[in-house]
Amino acid sequence: MNIILCVKQVPDVTEADIRIKKDGKDIEKEDLEMVINEWDNYAVEEAVRIKEKYGGKITVITLGDEESEDVLRRALAMGADEAIRIDEEGFEGSDPRGIALGLYHVIKDLPFDLILTGAQSADMGWAQVGVLLAGMLNIPYATLAVQIEIKDKKVIVKRELESNTFENVELPIPSLITIQSGINEPRYVSVLGIRRVRKLKIEEKFLDDLEIPPDKVGEKGSIIESMKLMPPPEGKGAEIIEGSIEEVCERLAQIIKEKGGL
């Protein structure tokens, strides 16, 4: 079972103060730590589990700058075998189609049985790259997988639908699956694990090598234009409690009491 994994590096915003750039098109990333996209992390774990069970080779691909090699190394430490980085230059400002196009031009020449991607990315949240890529490769796909089972050259995918309902679908091989978070418990990657893959070579691809017409990708090739980024407006019901910890807690307890929570 040869698997291709598409992963992405995103800024960690769990506890960060997010500031929007002056041009209003992106956030300030300078002070932010970069991490693997949460959904992709589940996809890596799933791929490694499939490999441990059925054998095969995992090739992990990302589209990003040099710093994004970190997520590739992380995936290698988890059990991927080879890594390819498509350099971001020329792809900046791409819409999902531009990114899928970049991935497509690398993957089309590779042998594979399955492609796994995260269901969506934590930063832009389009959830489209996976399905667009499947379309370009002309293979079947399933989204939001919460369980994958492989039986006689077929893949049975349990998909998460709305309001706690699930759907089982059967896909042939090759096909593409986008992974929902929570499908597994991703393993811990130790510093030793990362050190061990430090010297593995990461293959690099550049826009020029990929025979993609430059006007199809990047901001120029994008049919979606980001107009303005803004924080969600403060709702009317919201009250920001200020003061020392004691004061905040007291006020909070008071509110809970008033609303009948205690």
């Binding site: 393993r187 811990y188 130790s190």
Partner: peptide
Amino acid sequence: IEDGTRVPALMAQTL
């Protein structure tokens, strides 16, 4: 820790 697959979730997060 080296194996990674059985590290408790909170511990992994902390690390």
